[in-house]
Nucleic acid binder design. Structure first.
Length: 105
DNA sequence: ATGCTGACAGGAG
DNA sequence: ACTCCTGCCAGCA
């Protein structure tokens, strides 16, 4: 596993239940603000043994990853709702209230 | 080894 | 407001 991926996982692991974080936030925290895409790849290749809360990683619009990634349609949404994440009437996450801010070293 | 792809996002036209 | 182009980096053909 690359160092970059490991750091991504490390950050994702720190996101508490009831909050979400964006791909770009993670990329920024890693020193590569434009590597949001790589963060997505990292999630796709996420090692199950780390039991990462990948459902808490969303895009800046407050939308979750395409349904096909989690297998079942809208599964990610169900999990997030169960954790206390607030959804807007249009089906997007209320980023204003649920966005987690990374504690920078 | 070379090149294309992708759970994204920001800047330019 | 919307479309296109580019950055980033591990995987896979």
């Amino acid at each position: 596993m690359s160092d970059f991926y490991s750091r991504v996982y490390d950050i994702v692991a720190k996101v508490p239940a009831g909050y979400v974080i964006t791909y770009s936030q993670i990329a920024y925290a890693l020193g590569s603000p434009r590597a949001a895409r790589v963060v997505g790849s990292a999630m796709r290749n996420a090692p199950p043994e780390r039991k990462l809360p990948c459902h808490r990683v969303v895009n800046k619009n407050g939308n979750m990853a395409p349904n096909h990634v989690f297998g079942e349609r809208d599964l990610q949404r169900d999990i997030l709702e169960a954790e206390g994440v607030i959804f807007l009437p249009d089906g997007r996450i209320d980023m204003k209230k649920c966005r987690w801010t990374i504690l920078l070293p």
